[in-house]
Each structure stands twice: as structure tokens, then as C-alpha cells.
């Protein structure tokens, strides 16, 4: 079953690409595919943070608001402080994650309630800080401080490099460190993790802080691409991010999956969305397709059968 969940998304991705290519061969041109990937970078970064939260059996509904508030902070501070503005925006994301992690891990509220509340706070903060409007980032600070995110290196957009570097680091943390195994144990079963002496609260806090960090990074890259920070910049990101995680094969029940799976899940979503537009399926019908695919993905995902009924 685990093997199954690992290969199906890849096969699905190849099938999706081939189907779209059958309608329009130009879709297979390297430039189209690279463009597709760089467009999906911001969604991918947010989904990356979501992955570990889901991996430990929780959920984080605050991430799109966190990305928005980070984009606003960046846009406000970048004219004066340059690169430091990026650091502040990222730290803000980590802090929102810390609050979510505290409310969920220490105060022991269900994660969806904790993060829904924190997301509300973050969204309001974004609105208040921005004066409820979009804040432009001028060309000079943008090229000075954000070219690492939006320029090109070796003729490949930097969004792709950023995504791949973050993915590689995340894979090392997930697969090769005690923290990674602590996350897996926590997602599989908290009582057994406790008996093994794993620091449960600390692990949860760190996972939510990582989620906040990745969401903030997503907000920063997005602000760079759009030359502005805005309280609504990441709206409509939350569900695709969750869908990317689940489609990739990370189980909503926790304990199985991982960040590499989320790469496939994100590509699958972006290819499907772009492909449906290529083929000419209208936007409303696309939502129906996404809904059906999501249900199919969750029912096939590993770990669900073992844990029986889900609530």
C-alpha cells in the first residue's frame, strides 16, 4: 500500500502531462514545463510547510494568512531596510507558527481550531498593517533584494532553484535527523512516541514554526513576483496546498508521506489546472474535477485503512 501511494502520483503526473500534450504538443516544450514549475513554486513552498503538519497528524489552516502578512511586512520594510525586511518577514512567519504550535501542542486545542484562530489574527494583522490595500514594491529594492527569488540562474528561474534547495534541506531533515523520525512517530501514534521519550510538545512547536517559515517564504517569493505585498495575496492558496500534500500521498491520518511526495502533488495540481485550461474545460468544471480527484487521492492514501474510521 505504501509502495502504491508512492508511485501512483508520479504515474498520474506523467499521464496528466501526456494527456495535455496529446491535445497540444507545445505543452511538452521545456520552456512551457519550466514556466509551469516556476509558477507553482509559491504554492509548493506553502505546501511544504503543510506537509509536516499533516505528517504529524495535524492541520494548519493559518498558512495563507501567514503568507499574506509576510508579504505585507516585506513590502512595508523593503524600501528602507532591504534584505533585513526579508528576515523580518520570515521571522514573523515563524512567530505565527510558534503561536499555533503553542495553542495546539501545549494548550492542547485541536489544530484546526488553533490555526483557524491564529489565521484570523494573521489576516487581520495583514489588513491593519497594509491599511487594507496592496503595497507596491518599487523596481530598485526589488532587484536589489529579491533577485535571488525572481531572477534567473543558468537560464532557469530562481523560483525553481529556491524550491529545490528548500526541498533538499527539508528532505535531509525529514529523512536523516532524529527530529524527522520524531515527526513520523508522532504522526503514527502519540502514546508510543511518548514512551520512546520523544519530546512531543517541542516537536509540535518546531513543526508549526517550520510551517510558518515556509508559508512566509512563499509570501516573500510571491511578493517579489507580483511586485507588491497584499493582505489578499495568498487567498485561494490554502486548499490547493492541502490538496497538493494529499495528492502527493501524505496521509491525512499522519505518519506516512513526506516532502518529496508534495513535490509531485504540487506538480500534479498545476499540470491538471493548466492542462484543463489548455484543453478548454471551464473553470467551474475544473473545481468538480479537483474535488473528485481529491476524494480519490484520500481514499487511496496510505495509512488510512490501518487506522480505520476517520473523524
Amino acid at each position: 500500500m505504501t509502495k502504491f501511494a508512492g508511485t501512483i502520483p508520479w504515474l498520474g503526473l506523467i499521464a496528466a502531462i501526456l494527456i495535455v500534450a496529446a491535445f497540444d504538443a507545445s505543452f511538452l516544450r521545456p520552456m512551457t514545463l519550466i514556466g509551469l514549475f516556476s509558477d507553482s513554486a509559491t504554492l509548493f513552498l506553502m505546501a511544504l510547510g503543510m506537509t509536516w503538519v499533516i505528517y504529524i497528524g495535524s492541520i494548519d489552516l493559518s498558512l495563507q494568512a501567514v503568507a499574506a502578512v509576510s508579504s505585507v511586512i516585506l513590502a512595508l520594510l523593503i524600501p528602507q531596510y532591504g534584505m533585513v525586511a526579508i528576515a523580518v518577514a520570515l521571522v514573523a512567519g515563524v512567530l505565527f507558527g510558534l503561536v499555533s504550535g503553542f495553542v495546539h501542542g501545549v494548550l492542547k486545542l485541536p489544530s484546526f481550531i488553533a490555526t483557524l484562530a491564529v489565521g484570523g489574527i494573521a489576516a487581520t494583522a495583514a489588513l491593519a498593517l497594509s491599511g487594507e490595500r496592496s503595497i507596491q514594491i518599487d523596481a530598485t529594492p526589488r532587484t536589489d533584494s529579491l533577485s535571488w527569488a525572481i531572477g534567473r540562474t543558468l537560464d532557469i528561474p530562481n523560483e525553481i532553484w529556491v524550491s529545490l534547495i528548500v526541498l533538499a534541506l527539508a528532505m535531509v531533515i525529514e529523512q536523516m535527523t532524529p527530529f524527522g523520525k520524531a515527526m513520523k512517530a508522532l504522526g503514527s501514534g502519540e502514546p508510543a512516541a511518548r514512551i520512546a521519550g520523544i519530546r512531543i510538545q517541542r516537536t509540535k512547536l518546531i513543526v508549526f514554526m517550520f510551517a510558518g517559515l515556509f508559508a512566509a517564504l512563499s509570501g516573500v517569493v510571491l511578493a517579489g513576483r507580483l511586485s507588491s505585498g497584499s493582505p489578499t495575496i495568498a487567498n485561494e492558496f490554502l486548499l490547493p496546498a492541502i490538496a497538493a500534500v494529499v495528492l502527493g500521498g501524505t496521509s491525512l491520518a499522519g505518519g506516512s508521506g513526506g516532502v518529496l511526495r508534495t513535490l509531485v502533488g504540487t506538480l500534479l495540481i498545476v499540470v491538471a489546472r493548466t492542462g484543463m485550461t489548455f484543453i478548454g474545460i471551464n473553470a467551474l468544471a475544473q473545481q468538480i474535477v479537483f474535488g473528485l480527484v481529491l476524494i480519490a487521492a484520500v481514499s487511496l492514501s496510505a495509512g488510512r485503512a490501518q487506522k480505520g474510521i476517520m473523524k
Binding site: K184, A185, S188, G189, P191, A192, I195, Q306
Partner: peptide
Amino acid sequence: VPRERKIEGIVEEM
């Protein structure tokens, strides 16, 4: 080494 082996002892998926 707990009494409830499946719940507290091993992590089954690992």
C-alpha cells in the same frame, strides 16, 4: 516496556 504493546510499545508504521 509497556503492557499495551501495540499502542504504546511499537510504532506500527515504522
